[in-house]
Design a protein around this nucleic acid. Sequence first.
DNA 1: GATGGCATCTTGTCAATGACAAGATTAGGA
DNA 2: TCCTAATCTTGTCATTGACAAGATGCCATC
Lengths: 183, 183
Amino acid sequence: MTETRAYHHGDLRRALLDAALEAVGEVGPAALSLRDLARRAGVSHAAPAHHFGDKAGLLTALAAQGFDRLAQALVAAGDDLLEAGVAYVDFAVAHRAYFEVMFRPELHRPDDPELTAARERAGTALRSGVAARGARADTDRDSLAAWSIAHGFATLWLAGALPERVGEDPRTAAREVLARLTP
Amino acid sequence: MTETRAYHHGDLRRALLDAALEAVGEVGPAALSLRDLARRAGVSHAAPAHHFGDKAGLLTALAAQGFDRLAQALVAAGDDLLEAGVAYVDFAVAHRAYFEVMFRPELHRPDDPELTAARERAGTALRSGVAARGARADTDRDSLAAWSIAHGFATLWLAGALPERVGEDPRTAAREVLARLTP
DNA sequence: GATGGCATCTTGTCAATGACAAGATTAGGA
DNA sequence: TCCTAATCTTGTCATTGACAAGATGCCATC
């Protein structure tokens, strides 16, 4: 028998976020349809609005979740700067849907406290690798340089802009490129 | 008197591209509306379709135009690798609308010959700076590293992700950061 | 100078979407 | 038990992208 659906879904917010992550992976964040998410979750077309307000609200929540997972991945990579960079690129490629939402402020609700907090956690995890490296004069600029090269490589990889000769595995390719910064 | 509009616009294709560039700068490439462009150009809502087919066609043409202008900017910057990187970042910030369209393949018509050609011209201009620098063992990886750090810094700047202490001027900030790659 | 072909542009239409309003249902505490 | 608030539904509207069919006028050819 078809599963009779209760009036109350039970955990609709989580179900919508899961569906959104899947949908963003399929069609990208811009083409995301709230009504499609509602269909995937088996609820009416107006149900998402109650939990997230509008599309920007949903993508903001998804971005916050993404920054949290990125922070975890960076912490797990340890204090080695190169490994942190590789972990950054690996996260972007392995969790493309998150990454594509995280750095699109025009899709977000500006100044959302949860998003800001999650972004801050990821930023802290990112800088710790540079700080641990010590010895350099200008930690700020070094930090920005490391972030820039990792972010740039990840973005270009996701955009399909890199030539074929970089190979299939983003981790090894990233390691070789990022190593140019810290010889 | 209100300007009576001829049945034939005269240069509608260019007018639509100009309007698109302006609109993308205001609302971003995803929220672009073909009907809005038609209104800005003073033509009917279906006129854009004749020139570009659909939205992807229009954004593809805009991206091709952007790659051409980027190639010009890179050539004008000369053979110095650092200056080429600064020019790359400067282009992204000064011509944000172009840049935001250029690296979004999901908005493009895949394998468009004009876009591919324009991208190739920009890529050649980019690599020439690295090649001129010589002396290094692996030009491929050096090239990717330079592109990555410039692209990453530009992308983070545009996303508003950088901390306030980087300052107001993208050129000087970029110069300091990019210099970390080529000490 | 006339004419026919073709690029250009218009009007009309349809399904899909985001957003909002108002009502139905249920959970959980007083 | 009751009742208040959270949750979800139904209904609606303006906007949009895409397509179809028709109107207009430029231009080459005769």
